[in-house]
Design a binder for these strands. Structure first.
Length: 932
DNA sequence: GACATCACG
DNA sequence: GACGTACGTGATGTCC
């Protein structure tokens, strides 16, 4: 479409600076390979532009488009107010040189690129949006900057490109409580800490909207300020009237920016392929070049790999070639591989099986690799596939060794202490071999090496690691196995495909190992890997294989009882609601409560649905019967579906026990995670829930013993933050929350009330979690100001906590990670992000050393435990963060408790000398509930 | 597959 | 340039 911009035209205005900052913070600090120039933000920017262009199809596609940038730091707003944007942090050093490149990138995409000295992008956007509107066209502003919301309406909308979220007049109202034309008034009152717009002190968006809606507009409000009832508010508005008027001028966008181009100059143009691909090649964006070339129907430009140091290049650059892998079909070939393994002294091993549950899965084949590019697959039980046989056949495929023979040949090597077996997630392969009576040792695990070096940076699965550290995307398993109903197990995969896939996994593992092994030392995490990760593998494998006995009858009876109770509640709920609906649907429930029944307090979340969480319903329960019934129903529904029903399905038919799987490298802090089923969240806090815990039982003649660390995180906090009062209280065995309460609220210990203690307890936990006034207020259901008062007082009484928090944040900003007392690193890549994400990252950074140190301590205890209890008729079954559960023959309970408690209490020794001693509490019983 | 909810430490 | 507000998890159901 061409001609003069008008009706039927659609203008897109992209907030270029927003794109840049998003790109910068979304990506790690990438550099151009050939010369090390930082190009992360440019890469992200180009990716975003490319995605944007590709997404512009259909009737909504723009006819005109421009990317608008800020230019110069000094604008007419600084003339009005010299502190405007004064508290903004300086642009990061590695971002500055990238800014001009983003202009060139925009032009390379053949998109108009506009800026004007002395004006902010927002003003240019405002001017263009108003022009477009006046000419009867549409305009979409691609930005999430709330300053731009004043422009929305009459064909002007905003679009958050990341969330694909359109904001119209109603959207603005949701955000500001007023429609676009009054947004500046609200902003003038509320101010903006980011841009350093002063506003009216103590007035936020909520109050501002309230006032504006009551008085119509800012002018009237200030004129009639005397009429405001609240004395403090009245005084604020009268005193700061001038400042508020100034703020309004600051946030009001200039819709008359003089421009040296017109809307018609912004018509959408196709990119010039040579120019665009040339630019991308110059930047050395390999992936994006390929994608763009594909779209343009061109050959992808060849981007030369920079000449690396020759000896490294020789080692690292063996290309992946899935056709070069060997299929081992007979004893002679296998023997050649075994000989080769002895020559090298190490081998990467990977097993292929019929499933992910190692307790049930059967071995299908084994792959081996000794050096990059040199790998094989030994298929064992692949089935012959015949085209005419829909049901599959049990005939073994040709070209496979008998499993027994292969294992007989491999076992000495797998057990040989002189041969290092390398794997990716060796717990899995170790358990598969353990099922066959083979104990693999010694081992190395690339997943755990990555975890020790990169926790917090990214996941540690093979695909992630291969892409990140080898630049190679592994063959995906999906197309081989299929999905959904038609999914097959690996033994049905044709041999040629299986060899390529399976051998590649061993090849990748070996290459990762070569890369990671020397880096452990450089990253100074060798001790973490050697003492907290690697030795835990066989310990966890044994625990998982042991499993825990769960009484099916108890669960089954409870399921039935729950089903009846739920049906009853459901009927009552429908009666109270006046109609039938799906009680399990928060969406329908929200509509019933807040639309149909018109209860107060309905708050919509970002997806536009009412929040109906337990805290909301709890508040409503004082006014109406329905919310309480819903809460009851939800509790039972949760217990039934997640526990009494699901747990039964997890009982292994062979062992009659439940075998969880622990992920060692799941949680960034060093904690374990438990899956399939999760046995770390078995109910305990309610009476009903404890009955589920009681279904976890000991075998006849045995007893369950639970040992748990008492207040381990607070003890670690006392040590790390060096809090004398806290240390002393622990030393004297005092009630720690009561002591805190006594210190804070000046209440003698003898006069402590449960309520005061409860508050102190919440604050103690808050500190561990990186406290905020908002969070504490919500937790204690008290006003935010009061909560802030508590926190201030806490810091006053225990000043070293503030020091610890500040030091931790500073350390994280400087190094990009925080550390536990044992040297575990937890990376905090978002610590220098701006806005809310920084808050998250900071709190996580404060929490991670504490939670992580506790995790390290129990890991150390677990590693030492098997040897310590070897002579006792006892088995370690479960770990729940600060608790270990054992099953022990009757009569040996005391002996076990004595030994295990000692191991746990001294687990930090000798590496870390804690100022606070660790205390372990023990319990025992026929079931897990009793053992507490 | 995203989101809301809720179970645990 | 600011998406939200206590840390860390996993499982389930609804809804698109």
């Amino acid at each position: 479409m061409s001609g003069t911009f008008g009706k039927g035209h659609h203008l897109h205005l992209i907030d270029g600076s927003a794109f840049i900052f998003r790109a910068y913070h979304a990506l790690p600090p990438l550099t151009r390979k050939s010369d090390g120039m930082p190009i992360g933000a440019v890469a992200g920017f180009c990716n975003m532009l490319h995605r944007y262009v590709e997404g512009n199809t259909g009737p909504d596609a723009p006819t005109h488009v421009a990317v608008i940038f800020d230019k110069g730091s000094h604008t007419f707003r600084n003339e009005m107010y010299d502190l405007y944007k004064a508290n903004r942090e300086a642009m990061p050093e590695d971002l500055r040189p990238q800014i001009p490149l983003t202009r060139i990138a925009t032009e390379a995409f053949n998109i108009a690129c506009k800026e004007k000295e002395g004006f902010e992008a927002d003003d240019i956007i405002a001017t263009l949006a108003v022009q477009a509107r006046d000419r009867g066209g549409r305009c979409t502003i691609i930005s999430s900057d709330k300053d731009l919301m004043q422009l929305v309406g009459d064909g002007v909308e905003m679009l958050d490109a990341m969330k694909n979220n359109r904001i119209d007049r109603e959207g603005v109202f949701e955000k500001f409580g007023v429609y676009p034309e009054r947004v500046v008034d609200v902003q003038a009152l509320a101010g903006d800490s980011v841009d350093n717009v002063p506003g009216a002190p103590g007035i936020g968006i909520k109050t501002a909207a309230l006032l504006i809606n009551e008085y119509g507009d800012l002018h009237s409000l200030l004129e009639r300020a005397e009429e405001i009832k609240q004395p403090k508010r009245r005084q604020t508005l009268i005193e700061h009237a001038e400042q508020i008027r100034l703020s309004r001028r600051l946030v009001l966008l200039d819709e008359n920016t003089p421009l040296d181009f017109t809307l018609d100059d912004l018509e959408v143009r196709d990119p010039d392929p040579d120019r665009l691909l040339g630019f991308l090649a110059e930047m050395e964006f390999r992936t994006l070049s390929r994608r763009v070339a594909e779209v343009l129907g061109r050959e992808a430009p060849v981007i030369a790999e920079p000449a690396a140091l020759p000896e490294i290049a020789a080692e690292a650059d063996v290309p992946f070639d899935s056709t070069a892998y060997e299929q081992v079909s007979d004893a002679a070939a296998l023997q050649r591989w075994i000989d080769r393994i002895y020559e090298f002294g190490h081998v990467a091993v990977d097993t292929e099986t019929t499933g992910l549950d190692e307790m049930i899965a059967e071995l299908v084949g084994i792959s081996l690799a000794v050096e990059p590019g040199r790998a094989c697959y030994i298929p064992l039980t692949h089935k012959q596939s015949r085209g005419d046989d829909l049901f599959g056949s049990d005939d073994l495929a040709e070209g496979q060794m008998a499993t027994e023979e292969a294992l007989r040949m491999l076992t000495p090597m797998l057990k040989d202490p002189a041969i290092l077996k390398i794997g990716q997630n060796m717990k899995y392969d170790g358990k598969i071999f353990a099922q066959l009576g083979i104990t693999m040792t010694p081992i190395d695990d690339t997943m755990l090496m990555s975890y020790a070096m990169h926790a917090g940076l990214h996941g540690h699965g093979m695909d992630t690691l291969s892409e990140r550290y080898l630049g190679h995307t592994p063959i995906p398993i999906k197309p081989l196995l299929g999905s959904g109903k038609s999914a097959v197990t690996f033994d049905k995969v044709p041999l040629s495909d299986a060899v390529a896939y399976a051998a590649e996994d061993a090849d990748i593992t070996l290459r990762l190992w070569q890369k990671f092994k020397p880096q452990l030392h450089v990253a100074q995490v060798t001790r973490v890997y050697e003492t907290l990760e690697r030795p835990l593998v066989p310990v966890l494998a044994a625990m998982e294989r042991s499993g825990v006995k769960v009484d099916r009858d108890t669960l089954s009876r409870m399921s039935n009882a729950f089903a009846q109770k739920m049906a009853m509640l459901e009927e009552e709920i429908h009666t109270l609601a006046g109609r039938k609906f799906n009680v399990g649907s928060p969406k329908q429930l929200g509509e019933i409560l807040f639309d149909e029944m018109a209860l107060e307090g309905g708050k919509k979340g970002k997806t536009g649905a009412y929040a109906t969480g337990a805290d909301v319903l709890e508040d409503l329960a004082t006014e109406h019967e329905l919310p309480r019934k819903i809460l009851d129903w939800r509790q039972i529904s949760k217990l039934k579906s997640t526990y009494t029903d699901a747990l039964q399905d997890h009982i292994n038919p062979d062992t009659g026990r439940v075998h969880t799987c622990y992920s060692i490298a799941g949680a960034s802090t060093g904690r374990l995670a438990s899956t399939d089923p999760n046995l770390q969240n078995i109910p305990i806090r309610t009476e009903e829930g404890r009955r589920i815990r009681a279904a976890f039982v000991a075998e006849p003649g045995k007893t369950l013993v639970a040992l748990d660390y008492s207040q381990i995180e607070l003890r670690i906090l006392a040590h790390m933050a060096e809090i004398p009062a806290l240390k002393e209280a622990f030393e004297q065995g005092q009630d720690i929350h009561a002591m805190t309460a006594s210190e804070m609220f000046d209440v003698p210990m003898a006069e402590m009330t449960p309520e005061i203690r409860r508050r102190a307890k919440a604050i103690n936990f808050g500190v561990i979690y990186g406290i905020s006034g908002f969070g504490l207020a919500r937790n204690l259901r008290i006003p935010r100001g009061e909560a802030q008062g508590f926190i201030d007082r806490y810091f006053e009484r225990f000043p070293s906590i503030r020091t610890y928090m500040n030091d931790t944040k500073t350390f994280a900003k400087e190094h990009g990670f925080v550390q536990t007392l044992f040297g575990r690193k937890i990376h905090t890549p978002e610590i220098s992000a701006k806005g809310p994400r920084a808050g998250f990252a900071q709190r996580a950074a404060i929490n991670a050393p504490i939670q992580g140190t506790a995790a390290d301590i129990i890991r150390r205890a677990m590693v030492r435990m098997p040897a310590a209890i070897a002579d006792l008729p006892a088995t370690m079954l479960l770990q729940v963060h600060d608790e270990l559960l054992f099953e022990v023959e009757n009569g040996a309970e005391e002996a076990l408790i004595e030994v295990a408690r000692d191991v746990m209490e001294s687990a930090a020794d000798p590496v870390v000398k804690l100022d606070v001693r660790l205390v372990v509490e023990a319990g025992r019983g026929a079931n897990w509930a009793e053992a507490h």
